[in-house]
């Protein structure tokens, strides 16, 4: 195995595109190293992207934030403005693994690992984040919900890297929340994950919303019906019941070692309601 740590994104793309064997990007490494250790993957080339400054920064851009794909969860949490603007997303990124893992794991890695249960991906989808990809043919932007197609399958072409995420500018009284269900309090993979981002008008009516679910289908979902259920409401009982139903209707989960179909569907509704209420509470103060 060859290890390379280029300091420009173009050099990284060149290395990845030029590798005839199996190439892998190393960001936080918290998934890749585990897979290498257990012989799930045996790359011929590993390209460490942490020396590329563009990928390691959080910048304000167009009223929003551009977050480098290799910024760690701990760094997101320590950022001066981000946790206040996107508390749900920062929480989601910091639910990935332990304190130790948060010091390494990145949202880019979380997305590109291609797991339907990735915690930060529903957060990004709810946030309406756009990913900027850089590849041999230049740069392009894709909505985060369009990147993961199926377990371990991404819409990236050979040599393409996720460079950063653009979190859009948002009006006043906007906020988000992410909740996941795990059997323990920490250190588990989400059995169900749910992100909700919303905006309230001065009267408290929800004017915009995005709801996403993780671990309930082959890929993280943007659930438009769930958002519609609360838009135009003050998240009263009836709206929340519709939200729950829409979230459950969107689920196409499997039975596995982490949960049953029935359980995942049930809990998806519960989390959607709870996350929406948290986001609402936060938005009132934002």
């Amino acid at each position: 195995m060859r290890y390379e740590a280029p300091d420009t994104i173009d050099a990284a793309v060149k290395l990845l595109a030029g590798e005839a064997g199996l190439a892998r990007v190393l960001a936080g490494g918290t998934d890749l190293l585990v897979q290498m250790r257990s012989d799930v993957v045996s790359p011929d080339l590993v390209v460490d992207i942490k020396k590329i400054s563009e990928l390691r920064q959080v910048k304000e851009e167009a009223g929003g934030f551009r977050v480098g794909a290799a910024v760690t969860g701990a760094e997101l949490k320590e950022h001066a403005k981000l946790p206040k603007a996107w508390p749900g997303l920062v929480e989601a990124a910091n639910l990935i693994g332990s304190t130790q893992v948060q010091g390494r794991a990145t949202m880019g890695g979380n997305l590109c690992n291609g797991s339907p249960a990735a915690d930060s991906v529903p957060g990004l989808i709810a946030a309406g984040a756009t990913a900027t990809l850089v590849g041999p043919n230049g740069r392009r932007d894709l909505k985060v919900e369009d990147i993961m197609l199926a377990p371990r399958k991404l819409a990236l072409t050979k040599g393409e890297i996720v460079a950063s995420f653009l979190l859009p500018a948002r009006p006043a009284r906007s906020s988000d929340a992410y909740l996941r269900f795990i059997p323990r309090t920490e250190m588990d993979i989400a059995v169900v994950g749910c992100g909700v981002s919303l905006t309230l008008d001065p009267s408290g009516t929800c004017t915009a919303a995005r709801v996403s679910l993780g671990a309930v289908a082959a890929r993280p979902l943007l659930v438009e019906d769930a958002a519609k259920a609360i838009i135009g409401t003050k998240l009263n009982h009836a709206a929340l019941a519709k939200l729950e139903a829409a979230a459950r209707a969107a689920c196409k989960p499997i039975d596995d070692k982490r949960g049953t179909v029935e359980f995942r569907i049930d809990v998806a509704g519960v989390l959607a309601r709870r996350a929406a209420l948290i986001a609402q509470e936060r938005a009132r103060k934002a």
Partner: peptide
Amino acid sequence: LENPGFLDYRMPVASD
């Protein structure tokens, strides 16, 4: 065996 690791063999952690 589907859960031969501490991730899915869920022993209590400090916060539990």
